[in-house]
């Protein structure tokens, strides 16, 4: 399971994935979780780069990762 996880930035545009792990300062991670971005959330890359735009639960969210906050995702196998 874990070895399939890639950083969020590794997704290509339109690719769907599930969030596996968010690591970083507990407070930052908690903020992301309150925002709805947490383990198991289905995300889709809309625009790559830094910051990137991802789609989650129908909403678009703009996100810039850094050295302290990493989101690992597992791409959906039947991704197109």
């Amino acid at each position: 399971m874990i070895d399939k996880a890639i950083p969020l930035s590794g997704l290509s545009v339109g690719q769907l994935a599930y969030v596996r792990r968010i690591s970083g300062h507990p407070d930052h991670v908690h903020r992301l979780e309150e925002f709805g971005l947490r383990g198991g959330t289905r995300v889709q890359m809309f625009r790559r780069g830094s910051p990137c735009i991802i789609r989650m639960a129908g909403n678009k969210v703009c996100f810039r990762a850094d050295d302290l906050l990493r989101i690992l995702v597992e791409p959906e196998t039947a991704s197109s």
């Binding site: 909403n59 678009k60 969210v61 703009c62 996100f63 850094d66 302290l68």
Partner: peptide
Amino acid sequence: GEVSPFLMELPS
């Protein structure tokens, strides 16, 4: 100080 993470909703 260090750069903080950036997270923002883009409303429809």
